[in-house]
Design a protein around this nucleic acid. Structure first.
Length: 686
DNA sequence: ATGACCAATTGA
DNA sequence: CAATTGGTCATG
């Protein structure tokens, strides 16, 4: 598209009413004056300017010069003069006149005619900013990828017609109660909302693809969000199998700016209507959106690490609410947020009955790993493996590959009491202890305090051990315990996506488990006590999610599939694993959260920064009725020292809480005070 | 942010 | 009395 020349702002026509009365002025040394005419129709552009200041987070009106009339359209990029600087912005709309009293400055440049910000996404960015008490320009940065001019100039490929076999889609979903109805409703143009408990095994990408296909059959678009690139690749392949080539697109950040922009344009121009992607794809401008879906919404990869830290699930739910489209939350596990949607009746459950589940799930057992048991067993002593687990591995290896999930990577991370195995914590701040160097006493990883005379508060023991050995060390030890068996590792920056079906030991960290055709003969979950040693709000939910993720890679019980978890069989979270009951667990967890006034039953916001700023920020809030302020308390391990306050409000007052946070940030920004970091419903609150 | 403006404060 | 500094306000 043609790009327009810069405009001299001295040559301002009068504001919007009537034709512009151009005044020429030739300043000494200035470029020769050119008369600027306003666009013949809708001469005013409402522009969202890219400035990071909270109190400037609203549209500003500019005059559209006649030369830019063709190029400037709703959703297009422009450059404008703002507060003496050239800044970029997005045109929200073209209107006939402005409410602004003073004269309007002309747009400085029309960057492109490409409408990259659709009206729906423009509205969504506003809702997300409001919900997370952030600025719209921050959200816009997440929503619209950077421009690549060469890609934009190329002619788009013609949309491919899509033929969908709705009967096949329905067939795939009938394993679930409510599944057939879900597909029917999608295909008929309805907007069902469902929380889907996926059956173990590798069918979920295909089911997501079929849900998308049913939506396309109704003439609408579908948007599928998954946690990582491995998942994108799997759903991508399933969409190709179900829809044929060229009918969908994968949106990921790691493919480079040109490829990313090309995929984005295919969506925004309506060339394709089915999209799979990671968290940034939640903002994809899918035409005629009919379905939003998120897989494994408990995965913290779906939580955006950049301000204002929106979560993919919440972005998609805002979209579904706003556009009245269908919503699907699926996973092996269930988050408390998904459970909440069921409890409030907003979504329906889609789950298989117990008989179907029993047929497809492996047999799950828990085996203790007390020191006494370990002492009786020399193999266990070296490999942290009780006899039961050791035997299950041996039996599994006779049938195929065996997966061992080990909680963390690296050689030594956390210390624990040598006698009772309780993870050792700092008496000052409760942070984990570490050994930083040989011949130094243990020190706290958070506050750095050295603990030369540490004693276990549980049993009084003074010895420390480093019980957590990463996947590489685990692999070495197991290789010795099972000589002759190939050992593969996956974790950290060396992740295997798939392994061969033959007998092998596969050691992986959570989320890095390789796929294997026909499933693992046996899955062993090591050191479950360690995964539960964290003090985070979501520790148990997260542990169960990771265990179910690994367990769902095992063969069905009928094919000999077994899962052995090494841990305390009395723990409810491990009992939920044995019964394969993520729904029941999420239900109990939600009740506990509700009685403790924690999300999702309440809305939380954390404010962090230097102590003075946090105190002033909290004082500047107009808190809704029923809310309370916790803290501020020092943030452990922060240097320079920071403090954090947590504000808690009833869920119904969540909107009011976000509004007062936005207002407070606006006031602070106008007064040139340092911004306080605000996180609404942060994922990892200790 | 940047810049404009006004008022209070400081300096010769 | 002028120069300087600090707060407030607006940014189209």
């Amino acid at each position: 598209m043609a790009e327009d020349r810069d405009t001299d702002e001295a040559l301002l026509p009068a504001p919007s009413r009537g034709p512009a009365s151009a005044r020429a002025r030739v300043a000494h040394g200035a470029p020769p004056a050119v008369t600027t005419h306003a666009a013949p129709e809708l001469p005013v552009a409402r522009v969202l300017v890219d400035v990071p200041l909270a109190h400037l987070d609203r549209p500003f009106d500019y005059l559209v010069p006649a030369t830019m009339h063709e190029t400037v359209c709703p959703g297009s990029r422009v450059k404008v003069r703002f507060a003496g600087q050239d800044v970029s912005g997005f045109v929200l709309e073209r209107v006939a006149s402005s409410d602004h009293e003073g004269r309007l400055a002309p747009l400085r440049r029309a960057v492109s005619a490409e409408p990259v910000l659709s009206p729906e996404v423009a509205r969504l960015t506003g809702l997300v900013a409001a919900r997370y008490a952030g600025t719209r320009s921050d959200v816009l940065r997440l929503a619209v990828p950077s421009r690549h001019a060469a890609v934009e100039k190329r002619e788009p490929p013609a949309p491919q017609p899509v033929e969908v076999d709705v009967t096949a889609a329905r067939q795939e979903w009938t394993a679930y109660a409510g599944g057939g109805e879900l597909v029917d409703a999608l295909a008929a143009g309805g907007s069902p909302r469902a929380v889907w408990s996926a059956l173990p095994g590798g069918s979920w990408p295909r089911l997501l693809a079929h849900a998308a296909a049913a939506t396309l059959a109704s003439g609408r678009g579908a948007l599928l969000c998954v946690p990582d690139h491995k998942d994108v690749a799997r759903v991508d392949a399933a969409l190709t199998a179900v829809l044929g080539k060229g009918r969908h697109v994968a949106l990921t950040a790691d493919v480079g700016p040109a490829a990313r922009y090309r995929a984005f344009l295919a969506v925004s121009r309506g060339t394709v209507r089915a999209v799979v992607g990671t968290r940034a794809a939640a903002f994809a401008p899918v035409h005629d959106l009919g379905l939003v879906a998120v897989w494994d919404d408990g995965d913290d990869l779906l939580s955006e690490p950049r301000a204002p830290y929106p979560h993919t699930r919440e972005v998609l739910l805002l979209r579904a609410r706003e556009q009245g489209c269908a919503a699907l939350l699926g996973g092996f596990a269930r988050t408390v947020e998904a459970e909440y949607l069921l409890r409030t009746g907003w979504a329906r459950e889609v789950a298989a009955d117990r008989a179907t589940l029993r047929a497809l799930a492996p047999v799950v057992s828990v085996t203790g790993a007390t020191d006494r048991e370990l002492e009786r067993d020399p193999h266990a002593r070296t490999a942290r493996l009780p006899r039961t687990a050791y035997d299950a591995i041996g039996a599994g290896l006779a049938q195929g590959p065996v997966l061992l999930q080990t909680p963390r990577q690296g050689y030594v991370t956390v210390l624990a009491c040598d006698s009772c195995r309780t993870p050792s914590r700092c008496p000052v701040c409760a942070g984990p202890l570490q050994l930083r160097a040989a011949h130094r006493p243990p020190s706290c990883r958070w506050c750095g305090t050295e603990q030369p005379h540490w004693a276990c508060p549980i049993c009084g023991g003074r010895g420390l051990r480093a019980p957590v050995v990463g996947e590489r060390r685990t692999a070495e030890e197991l290789g010795r315990a099972f000589p002759g068996v190939p050992v593969r590792t996956s974790g950290g920056d060396r992740v295997l996506s798939e392994v061969e079906p033959g007998p092998a030991l596969v050691v992986a960290t959570p989320g890095a488990e390789p796929l294997v055709e026909d499933g693992y003969a046996c899955v062993v979950l090591l050191d479950t006590w360690l995964a539960l040693a964290r003090t985070d709000l979501r520790t148990q939910e997260e542990a169960l999610r990771r265990w179910l993720g690994a367990a769902s890679l095992a063969r069905p019980a009928g094919d000999g599939g077994r899962v052995v978890a090494v841990g305390d069989p009395a723990l409810p979270v491990l009992q939920a694993l044995v019964r394969w009951d993520p729904a029941g667990f999420a239900g109990r967890e939600l009740e506990e959260r509700a009685s403790a006034h924690l999300p999702p039953a309440s809305r939380l916001a954390s404010l962090s920064g230097p102590a003075d700023d946090v105190a002033a920020a909290v004082a500047g809030l107009t808190l809704p009725a029923g809310s309370e302020v916790l803290g501020p308390v020092p943030v452990p391990g922060s240097d320079p020292p920071l403090e954090r306050a947590v504000v808690r409000a009833p869920r119904a007052a969540g909107g009011a809480l976000s509004r007062t946070l936005v207002e407070m940030q606006g006031v602070r920004s106008a007064r040139k005070l340092a911004p306080v970091r605000v996180q609404v419903d942060p994922v990892g609150l200790g």
